[in-house]
């Protein structure tokens, strides 16, 4: 009987090893482990054996059954992975083919840079404020210390409407509108579209973007203004920026400045962008004129503040090396899709 078991073991091993596919393997399982198999017959015949032999043979037969079962499942796994492999091989991809893109639109460079700017000023506690683009003479000029007939009005070439309204020439009217409704302390930025009545060329546009800022409190100084500008530009350009203030005149500030930053290209050494000066003109600013505080109903003796207007379109042109300001409003997708 033991000999029979050995024979079954040898045959089964051989058959399992040679099984070429899963169907054949199943046949083998039925042949060696099925109800009609020799092994099953042996197990069934155990009860007729003497007690000694019954125990010994029984143990061996059970071991054999376990072994065959193990061999079968091993072979099954082997065959399975071979099959999977052949399927996978057929699914091979050419990984050098270009990816298929989900089409996304593009953000306008103006709003893209503006988001950055708003982020920086926002982190310094500046609220972003809007205002109308069609303005009255009062907000665009008069409240900004430029009564009718003031010669400084010539600094802003103005588009007038037939009903005496005008297209704002700067974002400064929003300062006035905001101060009329809020009391100090104030920290705002006002990004927005402004209009100028002038002939257009690569660096002049009738419609462009400006960024206004206003801080009002009881003790605000020129030193504070320099620091806020330095902080902003250093973060915006990602490295240390120096601020230079040159005297200038805007009726709504006193003293008034022209803001220069150390050249972001050459770091102040002198290059073609800064015309070898090491400095770039970036906007106008100053300490808010007491007459503006009066116009909005503040006590000019108690309020102090600074205001600035940055040539925002120019900053974007410098950032992306855009040669012509007119591209911003061109609507040309060949331009817009680059951002």
């Amino acid at each position: 009987m033991e000999k029979d078991l050995e024979k079954i073991r040898a045959h089964a091993k051989e058959a399992i090893r040679n099984a070429a596919d899963l169907g054949f393997l199943e046949q083998i399982r039925v042949e060696y482990m099925g109800r009609k198999s020799a092994l099953t017959a042996i197990l069934r015949g155990l009860k007729d054996l003497p007690i000694n032999a019954r125990k010994r043979i029984g143990q061996e037969a059970n071991h054999l059954a376990e072994e065959i079962e193990r061999l079968l499942s091993e072979r099954k796994r082997e065959l399975g992975s071979v099959i999977r492999e052949s399927i996978l091989a057929k699914e091979r991809l050419d990984v050098t083919m270009p990816g298929s893109r989900i089409e996304r639109g593009h953000q306008h460079p103006v709003t893209k840079v503006l988001a950055e700017i708003e982020g920086i000023f926002g982190s310094m506690g500046f609220e972003t404020v809007d205002g109308p683009e069609v303005e009255t003479d009062f907000y665009n000029f008069e409240a900004l210390n430029m009564p009718p007939g003031h010669p400084a009005r010539d600094m802003w070439d103005t588009f007038w409407l037939k009903n005496k309204l005008l297209l704002r020439t700067h974002t400064s009217p929003v300062q006035v509108r905001y101060m009329e409704k809020h009391n100090p302390p104030i920290r705002i930025i006002v990004p927005g579209r402004v209009y100028r009545y002038e002939a257009t060329d690569a660096s002049h546009e009738i419609q462009f973007e400006q960024l206004e800022g206003l801080v009002v409190d009881t003790h605000i100084s020129v030193a504070n203004f320099k620091a806020v500008m330095q902080e902003f530009f250093s973060r915006f350009y990602g490295n240390h920026i120096e601020i230079q203030l040159r005297p200038s005149y805007f009726p709504f500030v006193e003293p008034g400045f022209e803001i220069f930053i150390s050249c972001v290209i050459c770091k102040g050494k002198g290059c073609s962008v800064c015309k070898q000066t090491g400095w770039l003109e970036i906007g106008g600013a100053g300490m808010v004129h007491p007459n503006v505080f009066k116009a909005v109903g503040y006590n000019p003796k108690q309020a102090r503040g600074f205001a600035f207007g940055l040539g925002f379109s120019r900053m974007i042109m410098m950032k992306y090396k855009i040669p012509d300001v007119r591209l911003f409003n061109s609507g040309d997708l060949r331009f817009l899709k680059q951002f």
């Binding site: 920290r187 409190d217 030193a223």
Partner: peptide
């Protein structure tokens, strides 16, 4: 200020209240 030269004035951050900007 002009006679002094604005470059003589050192930047100095203002003492702002640390309130976050209201959302627009």
């Amino acid at each position: 200020g002009r006679i002094l030269g604005y470059e003589q004035i050192s930047p100095q951050l203002p003492e702002f209240a640390t309130v976050p900007a209201p959302r627009n």
